[in-house]
Computed example of a mutant assay.
Amino acid sequence: MPRPRKFVESDVVSSAGEVFAAHGLAAATLDDLVRATGLGKQSLYNAFGGKRELFLRALSEDREEATRAVSEALGHEDASALEQIRGHMLRLAIELSSSDRRVSLTTRALVESTGEDDPLSTATKAGIEQLAEVYAQCLEHAREDGDLPDDANVQSLAVYFVAVTRGMELLGRAGVGRAVLTAVALDALRALHGQRMEAADGSPSLRE
Rank of each mutant, 00 (worst) to 15 (best):
R5N: 14
F7A: 14
F7T: 10
V8T: 08
D11L: 11
S14G: 03
A16R: 03
V19N: 02
A21W: 00
G24E: 04
A28G: 03
T37Q: 05
L39I: 11
Q42L: 06
L54C: 04
L54A: 03
L59V: 05
S60K: 01
D62I: 06
T67Q: 13
R68V: 00
G75Q: 08
E83H: 15
H88G: 02
T107K: 06
T107D: 07
A109I: 01
A109V: 00
S113P: 06
G115N: 14
L120I: 11
L120Q: 09
S121P: 03
A123M: 13
T124M: 10
K125N: 12
A126Q: 15
I128Y: 00
A132M: 03
E133I: 01
Q137T: 07
E140Y: 06
E144S: 12
G146I: 06
Q155G: 09
S156Q: 10
V159F: 12
V164F: 05
M168V: 07
E169A: 11
L171W: 10
L171A: 14
G172W: 05
G172L: 11
R173Q: 06
A174Q: 15
R178D: 10
A179I: 02
V180H: 06
L181N: 02
L181F: 01
V184R: 05
L186R: 15
A188T: 02
H193Q: 14
M197L: 08
D201S: 13
S203T: 14
L206F: 15
E208G: 03
